[in-house]
């Protein structure tokens, strides 16, 4: 690591932030990261309530394969991934007889989708246009938030706003159906429809997260903030707000660290999320010990 990286850093946070945001690539990154932190925090709460962690993981692998397919076929990468992932989510959710959390068929599908992604990646890198850009696959897997251009950042923000609005519309029935599916069904909540719509929103959030942290690390933004939040707050509205706050904290801190240090932003985001989660669990354990002693 060369010391010149830190040379720009000053102890004055306002000067630092303005120097960071003077770069258009950092403004784009901050916009995309903010969008994913907000929609990821909201969707993440329901992911945990509905036990869809593994389904979220599977969708991010679909997004990887979709990214490879879009590269190969020359689609617009962002829109290609978005359309394919949302379509797969809608398809799976409408066909699946039970909730898609069930793990064996999900795992098997996921393995195959990744295998397909590997094939597409090989075809792409061995083709004349792809050989020059062998990093395309690594970017899709691990993210390249600092490489997002202005147009993609705007699309990310627009998709996030649409997803957030839609999520707010279905939030009440979704919450009801998540907490008590049987009673919700009896009361006339269209559980199936709500579940399909939610998975589509989740797929959109996954697409956003793939841009920022990459297909392998989406859970760091879709699950970890909400996992931390639900341990501090029980009420849904508070837990969701806290999840958004945690998401913003780790993405913005990750971006800042990535700006000053020569290491990947995705690494900082995953490490911060994990660190906060471990601290949360440790704090709980201490609390229990104290309560036991008192």
């Amino acid at each position: 690591m060369s010391p010149t990286w830190l040379a720009e850093f000053s102890a004055n946070p306002i000067a630092d932030i303005s120097s960071i945001l003077a770069n258009s690539f950092m403004r784009n990154a901050a916009l995309a990261a903010t969008a994913v932190a907000v929609i990821g925090g909201m969707a993440g709460y329901f992911v945990i309530m509905r036990r869809l962690v593994f389904a979220g993981e599977a969708l991010s692998h679909v997004a990887f394969t979709a990214a490879m397919g879009s590269l190969l076929l020359g689609f617009d990468p962002l829109m290609g991934v978005f359309v394919i992932t949302v379509a797969v989510a809608a398809g799976v959710a409408s066909v699946a007889r039970t909730t898609p959390s069930y793990d064996v068929p999900l795992g098997i599908t996921l393995a195959w989708v990744l295998g397909l992604g590997a094939l597409l990646l090989t075809i792409y890198t061995s083709s004349s246009s792809g050989s020059a850009n062998g990093a395309g696959g690594i970017n899709a897997l691990f993210g390249s938030v600092l490489g997002i251009d202005g147009r993609d950042a705007l699309i990310a923000a627009a998709v996030a706003v649409a997803g957030i609005v839609l999520l707010m519309v279905i939030a009440r029935p979704l919450l009801f159906a998540s907490l008590d599916p049987v009673v919700a069904g009896v009361r006339g909540v269209p559980g199936r429809l709500v579940s399909v719509v939610f998975l589509m929103i989740l797929a959109a959030s996954v697409t956003e997260a793939v841009q920022v942290v990459g297909a392998l690390l989406t859970l760091a933004l879709l699950v970890m903030p909400a996992a931390i939040a639900t341990r501090w707050a029980v009420r849904p509205s508070r837990a969701i707000l806290l999840a958004i706050a945690v998401g913003l904290l780790i993405t913005w801190s990750g971006l800042t660290l990535g700006y000053y240090l020569p290491y990947p932003v995705s690494f900082f985001i995953t490490t911060l999320g994990f660190g906060l989660y471990v601290l949360t669990r440790a704090a709980e354990m201490l609390g229990r010990l104290k309560a036991a002693r008192a």
Partner: peptide
Amino acid sequence: DGIAIAAVFTFGLGLGLLFLTLYPGQA
């Protein structure tokens, strides 16, 4: 519920990405 699993593996893979960045080899 998969949360502990997600926590460990996003952290682990993030570390893997760091190692990959430090490794001067090829993609």
